[in-house]
Nucleic acid binder design. Structure first.
Length: 832
RNA sequence: GCCGCGGUGGUGGAACGGUAGACACGGCGGACUCAAAAUCCGCUGCCCGCAAGGGCGUGGGGGUUCGAAUCCCCCCCGCGGUACCA
């Protein structure tokens, strides 16, 4: 038959056949509850859900190839695996697209979801599709709204007027986390401050726990560190400074109460509510007004520049330094931030760089209260900043001679006794601003009534559906405000005419709880059944990009803690283990972008080489947590590997006389090349298992399979049983990376379904040989290698090394000092 | 500025303190072919040497050790986070 010469690996046919079977049989479906009596441990594997826009890109494929490999490995190592998928389908791009093209965001989004679904199926990702969620559907956002009500009821969602960050391009407010370098994270426009009344979530109530519980989760250290820095816990004290003239106490927060004696002036933020009042009636009034107005209108970027010259204005008032009794001048200056601490500071120019710069500018006194231990004088041209035990307090009355560390404690205690201060902890984290003046998001289920005020929409009236509107153009208020029919409602409490809240929620609210809904996605009575959640939470491995290190991951942690407090959930942390994958860069090593023209769309590759090849290549690119540039040649290498395995299996299967034995069974007592192959197969099992259960070194796992395959080509004459075992093992090990081919070859070789097979266990007997290559070193340099028995004693190894020819020529004329023997490895002979 | 991570062949990378460079890409050579592609096989860190062999090698400098890519100190470079947070 001509077919024999034409036979080769054809991915397309194989892949669609297995995809159909998995779909028909719903192979990857799991029930909410484990069957009675089942003792399998659970494993909950989640990849960050995609935002559906256009077609999926290659980064998605990497994300899901990683998650899928882990899910398959977990299943075959005896776990009940929950591996769902969903869509983060509210958001600005769809809305901006609607403004441009007139296509309704729902239409565009749902078309995109369909294309993502097609792609995921063509990639063969093992998803339980019965659990799919999409955050824009009323079935989902009904419960997002319900969650909002639970938070509102407990005071965790509240309205306040504040200077909030406003993106003039997207025409909406933003959370602090969405402002990067004073610019809108999404569109890059410079952000403005606006005084607006908005909805906030009280994440600051959880600052301490969000910080502490980082110690309980297995996340990359740098991600934990980013969260720690973002939360920014500072230990210090609050101290009252009294303005005698007006009889008002102004508290400040300081991390350096030990330097209190050095506070020679006092500064308030321009936004501080008392600034104008303090200046009123003084000769500085006009100047202060002008300064405050300027500061409030200045761009965030200019104002936030730490390098610029310090500016400010004397308020014409003084406060009393509570420890020295001195009257010190009050200033307003834009280097003090209203959002942190109390909006006012005590300035200690001698020991704080910023205060020092300000003092220089305004000719204010600099008084050292901390000096080096050796009695030397600190430099006069800079602030002397140290707070450890390497210095000593001076000019500080009864506290002189203490180290700053001791002084901190003693001065705080003293302030406390005097009733003018107390120990205090401050966080950098701010409450989460969730209002958005945009259409394509989850409506906030609140009604405003003239008589009753802010009224919750009753739970049984949820969801508050997003109305259909004509005009998406943002005009400084939510487009929803134009839907007059929708806005006008009866007050749920008194029945009078009332108006709906027209802002929608930040889409990060939607994605802060989806992994909970996955566990119980069809529940129509509740967001979830806590009993079902207790089966699955927390997520055992969460996979996604580092770009979410702060935003999404912090918000999701916050939500889970709130739900735990409400008794809706048993865990304190959503994601036990986090894996952050690196980006796939373009062939030029640059980030892929349309403008650079270096985008590699996955579909044509999948069509040409098959999903298995692309998946294997992506996982073989290097450590998965690292960025890596696309390399077309190496993609071909992955395809070659798969073809080589296919050919090996095909030859075995199409040969006459198929042995009646189980292809997956290790032959007994193999000899010669057969033994080498059996050993290599066991070595590969061991290696792949280690890589998949520990650090996700997929590239090392694939390298081990490659070595096994290379050996199969090297020893074509090896006894058939050993070859069959080795090829079957290769197919089995390959399955998590190239599931279609793994399933296909395993089926042809054994007649069985590989995903129903337990993960192979390495035979310890086969992991070590009778002899090994003994490395013989002289003074740490390798001079020879000889075969030695694996169980040889130290004395024998030493003798073998001393006798090795390569060693002997380096011993001549030298005095033997000592011999180091590492059994099973090497001998190092030290000579002089 | 501060905090963190990382510098290994032409490239991606591998290496419990114990053979540096597995595996792959690329390159070179060979087999097959009329030829090419595909496939298969071999070689491939750098320097000296016909060879046998030797020397040098993990950003640079020092240290610990019988032995360092790996541990410690100093420096250089790159990447990431953050940036008036009192």
């Amino acid at each position: 038959m001509s077919e024999t010469s034409e036979r080769r690996y054809q991915a397309g046919e194989i892949e669609s056949r297995w995809q159909e079977l998995w779909e028909r049989e719903q192979t990857w479906h799991v029930e909410n509850h484990a069957p009675a009596g089942a003792r399998q441990p659970k494993s909950y594997v989640v990849e960050m859900l995609p935002y559906p826009s256009g077609e999926p890109h290659i980064g998605h494929l990497k994300n899901y190839a990683i998650g899928d490999a882990i899910a398959h490995f977990q299943r075959r190592t005896g776990h009940r695996v929950l591996h769902p998928m969903g869509f983060d389908s509210f958001g600005l791009p769809a809305e901006n697209n609607a403004i441009k093209t007139g296509v309704h965001p729902r239409v565009a989004t749902e078309a995109s979801i369909a294309s993502f679904q097609r792609a995921f199926r063509s990639w063969g990702i093992s998803i339980d599709w019965s659990r799919e969620i999409a955050s824009h559907t009323p079935e989902y956002y009904r419960w997002t709204q319900w969650i909002f009500l639970q938070l509102h009821r407990r005071g965790l969602a509240y309205r306040k007027e504040a200077a909030v960050k406003w993106c003039p391009n997207d025409q909406t407010v933003l959370a602090n986390e969405q402002v990067v370098d004073g610019r809108c994270e999404r569109c890059g426009y410079e952000v403005e401050l606006r005084q607006l009344e908005q909805w906030f979530l009280r994440i600051t109530d959880y600052a301490e726990r969000l910080l502490d519980d980082l110690d309980t989760i297995e996340w990359p250290e740098h991600v934990k560190l980013m969260q720690r820095n973002w939360i920014g816990r500072s230990v210090g004290a609050e101290v009252n400074f009294r303005c005698q003239e007006l009889g008002i106490d102004y508290p400040v927060f300081t991390t350096r109460p030990d330097t209190l004696f050095g506070a020679t002036f006092f500064v308030m933020a321009p936004e501080h509510p008392d600034v104008l009042r303090l200046a009123a009636g003084t000769e500085r009034e006009a100047e202060v007004h002008a300064y405050v107005n300027h500061a409030l209108t200045e761009s965030l970027e200019d104002r936030g520049d730490a390098e610029k010259t310090k500016t400010g204005v004397f308020l014409g008032r003084t406060v009393t330094n509570p420890v020295t009794g001195e009257e010190i001048p009050m200033y307003v200056a834009d280097y003090v931030l209203m959002e942190y601490g109390t909006g006012a500071i005590m300035a200690v120019p001698a020991h704080d760089e910023r205060d020092f710069a300000f003092a220089r500018q305004f000719g204010l006194p600099v008084r050292h209260v901390v000096a080096p231990l050796d009695g030397s004088t600190p430099p006069a041209d800079a602030a002397y900043v140290t707070k450890g035990d390497d210095a000593v307090l001076i000019n500080s009355g009864e506290f002189d001679g203490l180290t700053p560390k001791q002084g901190f404690e003693r001065i705080v205690a003293w302030l406390d006794r005097q009733g003018i201060g107390h120990a205090s902890v401050n966080f950098r984290l701010r409450d989460w601003l969730i209002s958005r003046q945009r259409y394509w998001g989850c409506p906030i289920p609140i009604v405003y009534c003239e008589r009753c005020g802010v009224v919750e929409v009753p739970e049984d009236e949820l969801p508050v559906r997003l109305p259909e509107i004509e005009d998406y153009q943002p005009q400084g208020r939510s487009p929803l405000a134009a839907a007059e029919d929708w806005v006008q409602v009866r007050c749920p409490e008194c029945g009078a005419d009332a108006r709906r809240e027209t802002d929608t929620m930040d889409t990060f609210v939607d994605s802060s709880w989806y992994f909970l809904r996955y566990c119980d996605p069809q529940n129509t009575h509740a967001a979830w059944d806590p009993k079902v959640l207790s089966q699955w939470m927390g997520v055992d491995i969460y996979i996604g990009g580092v770009e979410h290190a702060i935003l999404h991951l912090l918000y999701a942690r916050f939500f889970v803690k709130v739900f735990a407090d409400l008794g809706l959930l048993e865990v304190q942390e959503p994601f036990r283990r986090l894996f952050t994958q690196g980006m796939i860069l373009g062939p030029d090593g640059q980030k892929m972008s349309k403008s650079r023209g270096n985008v590699i769309p996955p579909s044509p590759l999948v069509e040409r080489f098959g999903a298995d090849t692309v998946r294997t290549y992506i996982l073989n690119m290097g450590p998965p947590e690292q960025d890596a540039a696309w390399n077309e040649g190496a993609l071909g290498g992955a395809h070659r590997l798969l073809s080589r395995i296919w050919t090996l299996a095909d030859e075995l299967c199409s040969a006459e006389a198929i042995a009646p034995t189980d292809a997956a069974a290790q032959p007994s007592e193999p000899q010669g090349e057969a033994l080498t192959l059996v050993r290599k197969a066991n070595w590969a099992i061991d290696r792949v298992t280690t890589e998949l259960s520990g650090r996700f070194g997929f590239h090392n796992a694939i390298a081990a399979i490659t070595e096994l395959v290379n050996d199969l080509y090297r020893y074509p004459q090896a006894e058939r049983g050993a070859r069959t075992f080795a090829v079957t093992t290769a197919a089995s090990l390959l399955f998590p990376f190239a599931p279609h081919l793994g399933a296909e070859l395993f089926q042809r070789l054994t007649g069985r379904r590989v995903w129903e097979e337990p993960w192979p266990a390495a035979d310890p007997e086969m992991l070590s040989a009778e002899t090994f290559e003994l490395v013989c070193q002289v003074n740490g340099k390798v001079r020879d290698r000889v075969q030695a028995p694996s169980d040889a004693e130290r004395e024998l190894l030493e003798q073998l090394a001393l006798d090795a020819p390569g060693v002997r020529q380096h011993l001549d004329g030298h005095e033997l000092v000592k011999v180091v023997v590492v059994p099973g490895k090497l001998v190092n002979i030290v000579v002089r």
